[in-house]
Design a binder for these strands. Structure first.
Lengths: 211, 211
DNA sequence: CCGGGAATCTCACGACCCGTCAGATTATTC
DNA sequence: GAATAATCTGACGGGTCGTGAGATTCCCGG
């Protein structure tokens, strides 16, 4: 993955690594304040106190910088995904579902601007972004699919459901809710309600149980 | 809504309306082939065989043209939303859910590129796009919320669920699944599976029944 | 502590798109 | 078919893009 090297392949010394990191951070900042379409290489450079030409030493374009940020973000999903490693039996199951939903919301709160670009680019067919998305979401999707399959074998989940499809549906729900809960909240729903309800839907879809 | 007028407010004659329509269609086409970030006003104009200055007579920028397209697309959701007007009892309920999911997928297949921009812009805080999204999704969300509330009163849906949150979760699931099913299909899930599974999750969340 | 080679940064440039006029072209009216 | 209104466009200043050649900074051996 993001092997630390300049665009021409040369490995980076200490100074260069610092510059690259500052460029990444500036990209992140500008992404949050302006939308992706208004992030200018010139301004990223300006913010770092360097010149555009420097930017192009490390990244082919703005997207490539965002790709690195998306790749870094993927790591933050790991602890969330591990909430699915234990079966969701009994009372603890619903708690785990709540923690997962809440964790997912937090993850998006931290990486919202980057995730948006990742999803846009992936949806528009950019394979680099598809890969990083698959790698990120896969951590959750695969585990949900496995749990659904387990519960299906135990007769709790309908055999007419496809485990992987259900997992994709749940991740879709999570992603979109996490992405847009702050558009809902001003309209009279609290975050707590959103988390609780989403967690219950998730819990039931995965386990087939009523808590 | 999209009152047909030029940027300076003057109403449009026949020729002007044609030009505007051709510009909208060209915008739609370019949106599909290139991503939003590569849609150049120059090229929209070129495709219509006119000059950039003409484009700016009708739209302040590319976004505004896409906004009109998103507004037009909203109408196509109406028949889908009406599938929620009858309560989802018995066997017909699951069929209605299937039709809704399938309809939603088709809707996205027709308007994918426009919907992507709508969601991006809305997520990035653009109020015009938020409005059109709320107007579009609201048709479905409000009806789902009402159904959930009905079934909740009848004791089939847990009182710990907030109807509006559940509706938002279901619409989120639908949107994202519709938006990215074609990224899943190459990975070994058929569209039929996705529709069936999504429909069952939707059906259960709305009605609280096992079909 | 200093010179020299490697690493890193920047200046300056041609190409292109943006958005806006004033003026040219086309349609409509009488 | 002439006058008037509606519509379109040429041309321009201002900005970003991405690049290569050259300037600057770093760092090591002596």
């Amino acid at each position: 993955m993001s092997q630390i090297a300049a665009i021409d392949g040369r490995p980076l010394g200490r100074r260069a690594q610092q510059t690259r990191r500052r460029l990444l951070d500036a990209t992140y900042d500008l992404l949050q304040s302006h939308g992706i379409r208004d992030v200018r290489v010139v301004e990223v450079a300006r913010q770092v106190g360097t010149s555009p030409a420097t930017f192009y030493q490390y990244f082919r374009d703005v997207d490539e910088a965002v790709l690195v940020l998306a790749d870094e973000a993927a790591a933050d999903v790991e602890p969330i995904a591990h909430l699915l490693d234990e079966p969701w039996n009994g009372k603890g199951g619903l708690d785990a579902a709540r923690a997962l939903v809440d964790g997912y919301f937090r993850f998006w709160d931290d990486h919202r601007a980057v995730m948006r670009v990742r999803n846009l680019a992936a949806d528009e067919g950019d394979d680099r972004f598809r890969d990083v998305r698959n790698r990120t979401l896969g951590q959750v999707t695969d585990r949900i699919a496995r749990s659904v399959a387990d519960n299906q074998r135990a007769g709790r989940v309908s055999p007419d459901i496809t485990p992987y499809s259900a997992a994709a549906a749940m991740v879709s729900m999570l992603e979109r809710m996490a992405s847009y809960h702050f558009d809902l909240e001003p309209r009279g729903v609290t975050r707590a309600d959103l988390v609780e309800t989403t967690a219950r839907i998730l819990h039931h879809t995965v386990t087939g149980r009523k808590p």
